[in-house]
């Protein structure tokens, strides 16, 4: 693909690192279109993360790969295929890792990134990325496509998120959603159009001055009639990431007092409210998280390291709590 055009717009936002999680039907077009439009002399770090190897059934939509690539790591092949584009972008640094993003490594992999482009095909991973980015105030763009339609949602820090649009999910619903295109099929170009809009959203955040009042934006596409729509999305009061938060300072306490005060606070809270607790050490945060899980509460953030040796835990008191 030729690096045929360069954007020359006001560059006022200081985002400098983007991560593409998943280099498949969404990630391939998103990556190509993003790089094709990136200004030649503007610095950027790109991180590509994907655990998979190329397989034959990928080839109806994953345009960076060919039959000769079957069995090779996607991040390796993708790096080769975008080589020509990268050679024209001397200020762009590329990092890759053949890795599956999960709750154990998400902090290590994404804590320094400014923007996450979600090209995964797992509902569980999408929610993990959404929740992590919301908590860390990282820009995130969701992409999803199955059968003849798809959607992209740009989640801006502090604005509506994936759970605000699609609601909360039970474990059973998450199981049903896993492997969407494997079960329901996919038209390759539908994924291509969604990936292109993900790139468009990302470029806008990197290259245009962001309006502080701007809400998250949802794009939908349906193949029948090639219908494309855009709409603004507002935070939902039912979303666990955007519902009312109560704060509890336990910095001076340790186990078992930390759990005792947490439990008393949770019992006092109405349903649909989340409790954000500050701890003075990691062991207390992890112990309280585990105990609350055993009590039936939903732990949104188990133990997030903050400055000065402090840790934050976030627990949602939802209607399913015992």
């Amino acid at each position: 693909m030729a690096h045929s055009e360069t954007v020359s717009l006001s560059e006022t936002v200081s985002l400098s690192q983007i991560t593409f999680v998943g280099i498949g039907g969404l990630g391939c077009p998103a990556l190509c279109c993003f790089l094709s439009a990136w200004p030649k002399n503007r610095p950027l770090t790109i991180q590509l993360l994907d655990p998979d190897q190329v397989s034959l059934s990928n080839l109806n939509r994953q345009i960076l790969f060919e039959e000769k690539d079957i069995g090779r790591a996607k991040v390796v092949v993708a790096t080769e295929r975008i080589g020509a584009l990268l050679s024209q972008l001397p200020q762009v640094e590329l990092r890759t890792a053949q890795v599956f993003v999960n709750c154990e490594n998400v902090h290590q992999l994404l804590s320094t990134t400014d923007y996450v482009v979600d090209g995964t095909d797992s509902a569980r991973t999408k929610l993990l990325l959404n929740d992590f980015c919301v908590a860390q105030k990282i820009h995130y763009v969701y992409g999803g496509a199955t059968a003849f339609s798809g959607a992209a949602l740009e989640v801006r820090p502090g604005k509506a998120c994936l759970r605000c649009v699609f609601g909360d999910f039970s474990e059973e619903e998450l199981l049903d959603l896993e492997g969407g295109c494997r079960a329901q099929g996919i038209v390759g170009v539908v994924a291509g159009i969604v990936g292109l809009e993900q790139a468009e959203f990302a470029l806008r955040s990197f290259l245009l001055e962001a309006s502080p009042a701007k809400s998250s934006e949802l794009f939908r596409f349906a193949l029948e009639g090639s219908r494309r729509t855009f709409s603004a999305v507002l935070p939902s009061a039912d979303c666990p990431n955007h519902c009312l938060s109560i704060y509890l300072d336990l910095l001076q306490l340790s186990c078992p007092e930390t759990f005792l005060y947490t439990k008393l606070a949770l019992e006092e809270l109405p349903h649909g409210v989340r409790l954000e607790i500050l701890f003075g050490n990691e062991i207390s945060a992890r112990n309280v998280s585990r105990s609350c899980q055993e009590e039936g509460y939903r732990v949104l953030i188990e133990s997030e390291p903050l400055t000065k040796g402090r840790y934050k835990t976030v627990i949602l008191k939802e209607s399913r709590a015992k």
Binding site: P29, A37, I193, L196, R204, L207
Partner: peptide, 13 residues
Amino acid sequence: LTSQGSLRALLSV
């Protein structure tokens, strides 16, 4: 910001 041509191409497919 992404190419108009890319969007048109995908819509034509």
